[in-house]
Amino acid sequence: MRILIAGGTGFVGSRLTQFFKEQGHEIYILTRNPHAQDYQEQVSYIEWLSPHSQPETELDEIDVCINLSGTSLNSGRWTNVKKQQILESRMMTTREFIRIMGALPQKPKVFVNASAIGFYGTSEEQVFTEDTIEPGHDFLAEVCSVWETEAQEAEELGIRTVFTRFGLILDRQEGALPKIALPYRLMAGGRLGNGKQWMSWIHIDDVVGAIDYIIHHEKIAGPVNLTAPHPKRNQDFGRTLSSVFKKPHWLPAPSFAIRTILGEMSILILKGQYVYPEKLDQSGYSFKHPTLKETLENIYS
C-alpha cells in the first residue's frame, strides 16, 4: 500500500511509519521541512503548508491517509492564545488534508483522522462508548467536536472516514508516562488530586495495531475509541505503577497545587473519563496489552 501521513515524525506517527515500513508499504510524510528529515528507505517527505507547496502534484494512487497533525496539548499553559493555536492548528491541517485528497485523481480508500477521548468531557461515574453522541462542555470536548466535524467532510469525497479518539498512550520514552513515572522513581509517588479520576489508557503497540486493523476492516467508520478495555482510576493506576517499580505510593499531590501550576491545563491530570473501546471489541480486535499491570511490566521490562 501507499500511505500518506501528516504528523509522521511525531510520537504516534514515527511508530506507525516504522511499522508500515516493516510491512513493506510505501510511506509519504507531509512536513513543513522535507529537507531537514533524515533519509529512510521506503519513506518520502513532501512539503506542505507553505505558500507554494502543492503536495498533490507529488502523489499518485494513495491508498490510506492518516492525519495526526496539531499543536500539542502539553506545549505550554493554556492561555487564550495557546487555546486558539490548539484549535486552529487542527482545523487548518485537516482542511488542507481534505483539499489534497480532493485533488488526487484517485481517492484513497480510507482517511484516519486523529481525535481524543476528551470529546466526551469528564466524569467519575459515566461509561462512554462510541454510542455517546453528545460531546462534553469543556475546552477539549469543543476542540474534538469541531475537529471531527471538519474531518467528516472527507465523506463527501466518498472516502471511508475514521476518527481515532486516543486515550492516554503509554510508552517508555514518549508521551505522558515518563512524567507520571518520575515521582515513583524518586520515591515520591502518590495519587493526583482526589485520585478518583479515570485514566483510559492504551499501550503504544495497540495504537499502532488498532490503526492497522481499522485500515484493513472496511466496515469500521466514524469514531473509534483507542483505549484498552480496562481503564483505571488514578489512585489504582499509581498503585499498579508502584508495584511494578517496587516503590512506595504514598505522597499525594493536592488539586489546588496542580491547578496553581497548570491552570486550565490541569484538567488533563485532575479530570478523566471511563472510555470503553466498544467498536474495536465488537469488530474482533485482539489487544496485545489489555491489562495495566502487564502493560507496565512490558514497557519497563
Rank of each mutant, 00 (worst) to 15 (best):
F163S: 12
P135W: 08
L170Q: 06
E174A: 15
V143R: 02
E156M: 00
T164W: 00
G175M: 08
H137V: 14
R172I: 12
G175C: 13
E155V: 07
E142V: 00
L170Y: 03
T149V: 08
L170M: 11
G158N: 06
I169A: 01
P135Q: 07
F163I: 01
E153V: 13
F139L: 04
V146L: 12
V143Q: 02
D171W: 05
D171V: 13
E153M: 10
V146H: 11
A154R: 05
W147K: 06
A151T: 14
V162W: 00
A154L: 02
G175A: 14
E153W: 11
V146M: 12
L177G: 08
A151S: 15
E174V: 15
L157C: 09
E155Y: 06
E156I: 08
G158W: 05
I169T: 10
Q152R: 05
V162M: 03
L177M: 10
F166V: 14
I169Q: 00
H137K: 13
E150F: 08
E155S: 01
H137G: 10
D138K: 00
Q173E: 02
L177N: 07
W147Q: 10
R165T: 08
H137R: 09
V143M: 05
E174I: 15
F139N: 05
H137F: 13
D171S: 14
A141E: 06
I169N: 07
A154D: 01
C144R: 09
E153I: 10
E142A: 05
A151E: 07
D138T: 00
E148N: 11
V162K: 02
L140C: 15
G175H: 12
E174M: 13
I169L: 01
T164S: 14
E148D: 13
G167D: 08
A141L: 07
W147T: 04
A176C: 12
G158E: 03
V162R: 04
L140D: 03
A154Y: 03
L170C: 14
H137E: 15
T149I: 09
T149R: 01
Q152I: 13
G175I: 11
R160Y: 08
E156F: 11
G167Y: 10
G158Q: 10
R165S: 03
V162D: 10
R160W: 12
H137N: 13
V146G: 12
R160V: 13
E142T: 02
A141K: 01
I159K: 04
R172A: 09
V143E: 09
